[in-house]
Design a binder for these strands. Structure first.
Lengths: 111, 111
DNA sequence: GATAGTACTATCCAATCGGGTAGTAATGGA
DNA sequence: TCCATTACTACCCGATTGGATAGTACTATC
């Protein structure tokens, strides 16, 4: 049986989490950053399929939710480094469980 | 440090998982079903904010991915009961972690 | 003097999402 | 005779998403 058995209060906190993580990109970006700070261009190639525009937008909301840090270096051309915050890193367990489940799901359904 | 440290293969399985669970509704529907089988109408009122049309669509893809069962009773007006499958129930840990993280997130960011 | 380099932003445009409303089937009860 | 009941589906239409393309800032190098 699942956490809280469908209890409305539990549903609320799941809702909060989903709101901060909505879309197919945020968790993948966080995952990419979990191995260390990265620059914009690095992220745009590592997170396969994302466009610059979308990446830019996603990074902004991740920063707003304090899941990542943005550090600008005063150089030309500009250099910006993104890193995961402690709060972002606390998603570790979620990513881990998602990873395991994804493996099982691929084995079972996708084949 | 997070699972697999950004390893591309781990990213793939996370991608698989996200694909099966995309959107703001699927996990909430599964959560509602985690406390026992429910009928369409029950789900549409329990999962606050969802429309019939969207619920219907989401249920279809959840069934396709074998996360829920659909059982039709031969009555008039029709009765349809949805229940979670074993595969769907294996998301328990994901929901649990999401729940905990959502609590922390609300405390930290939403306030 | 042209070009490359980074991290974006702006604009245009197509596709998809999702809400609202209405309709259907077969029966029992007012 | 008429209505309510359930689990949807069909249709219309506005809003949001997201891709492609181009442009900008400043400096160093060719």
């Amino acid at each position: 049986m699942l956490t809280g058995n469908g209890c409305p209060k539990t549903a609320l906190s799941i809702r909060d989490a989903l709101e901060a993580l909505e879309g197919r990109w945020k968790l993948l970006i966080l995952f990419a950053l979990s191995s260390g700070p990265k620059r914009f261009k690095q992220l745009s190639t590592e997170v396969t399929g994302i466009t610059d525009k979308t990446l830019s937008k996603e990074l902004k909301t991740l920063e707003m939710n304090q899941l990542i840090n943005r550090k600008v270096f005063d150089t030309f051309p500009p250099t910006v480094e993104y890193s995961i915050t402690e709060h972002g890193a606390s998603l570790e367990k979620v990513l881990e469980e998602l990873h395991y489940w994804g493996l099982a799901h691929r084995a079972k359904i996708i084949g």
